[in-house]
Amino acid sequence: MEILKLENVVKSYQKHVAVNEVSFDVPKGSIFGLLGPNGAGKTSLIRIITTITRADSGVVYLDGEKLGADHPSQIGYMPEERGLYKKMKVGEQLLYLAQLKGLSKADARNEIFKWFKKFEIEDWWDKKVEELSKGMQQKIQFVSTVVHRPKLLILDEPFSGLDPINTNLIKDEIYNLNQEGTSIIFSTHRMEQVEEICERIVLINKGKNILQGEVKDIKNQFKENLFEIKFDGGAIPTSIGEKYRVMDEKKGRLVIQLDPNADSNELLNDLIQSGVHVTSFIEILPTLNEIFIKQVGGQSDE
């Protein structure tokens, strides 16, 4: 079952096509990465999902229903550019935002206090937002995003501007929410975070969906059959160099590319046969970063 399903979504502004026939599914309960270079159409896509704008054509389903006016209350959205009313008190502000998401006042108050306790910020209720540090404001922003217990959480660069301690704090909360069943869409350029957090991704470039699937499948799809061998001792026998494509050779380290259908055991066998003392033998899988750069290439708009 999908929490979110996009079918051939198109959105254009004047002559510029921001989103061009994009389709993808976000499985329920997953952490999903929405990737793409600047100007790829991620924000346009997110704005369609959050009902800020409407798609010109195509359909979006949220939890099986066609996206409509009462769905914002089921979505939590943290934009990349954070914003709060600076002059408003923290408590009132959160109450206001929660009530706009459809919570009753009492319900909202309970939920806010729950988060305040979790973050140990119970005494912030009467503070004005402008009195808080950037990091503290981010915590409030996060609480405002999740206070109405959304089914789907959309986080646009959630860790930008956070120090490592707060990054971990928020990361843990994202995992917790995911454990409790919240589906999460995570939009970022930081590929190491995607690799760490996301199970599935979609890669958007120039408004088009160019790649999607599970992270490990994608990695396999883009592997180049590279193997890294570490060994003790001197030179590599010439027979190996003749039989295999050697990509890189350094002291005690060798990178070999096999043919797609070749058996890696054969390589290992040949190495051992020719008297190389192998200490490590691993397949090099491409990082998402490499795949990203390779796919997007020099074609990014910026």
């Binding site: 914002p72 959205y77 943290m78 934009p79 550019e81 914003g83 709060l84 009313y85 600076k86 706009l100």
Partner: peptide, 15 residues
């Protein structure tokens, strides 16, 4: 102020 504060994007994801 709402625009420069960037609160507006949060707001219009609700209303």
């Amino acid at each position: 102020e709402e625009k420069t504060n960037r609160i507006v994007e949060v707001m219009i994801s609700s209303v």
